[in-house]
């Protein structure tokens, strides 16, 4: 499946998009990590329903709030992932 990085996350990761094998969300992030040579994980904090990307680089862990859309729908609104496109979006929040 195609994985797109949208917003500031693309500069932290260093690419705009990548192709990986479709699978579970954990499997997809494992594939992304392998291809990029840096550890990237996704975590959903259940009590707040907030989602984060954890990036491990050179022994340093960084955490960013993200939203993930699968084929145009927020994954928090979906029953299960579908093959196609995964957009990892790092929105901005100030006004």
């Amino acid at each position: 499946m195609k994985v797109k990085f949208i917003g500031g996350i693309r500069y932290l990761i260093g690419i705009k998009e990548i192709e990986v094998e479709f699978g579970s969300l954990d499997g997809i992030f494992e594939s992304i990590s392998k291809k990029l040579g840096k550890k990237i994980n996704y975590t959903l904090e259940k009590e707040t329903n907030k989602s984060f990307l954890i990036l491990n680089e050179n022994g340093k862990e960084m955490k960013f709030s993200v939203v993930i859309h699968n084929n145009g729908e927020n994954i928090l609104k979906k029953e299960k992932l579908e093959n196609g496109e995964l957009s990892i979006i790092m929105p901005v929040g100030g006004g």
Binding site: K50, S51, F52, S65, V66, N74, G94
Partner: peptide, 14 residues
């Protein structure tokens, strides 16, 4: 629907 899951930073630099 678009931004569910997002957490705003408390004091974003702008």
């Amino acid at each position: 629907e678009l931004f569910l899951g997002y957490s705003s930073p408390k004091n974003p630099q702008v």
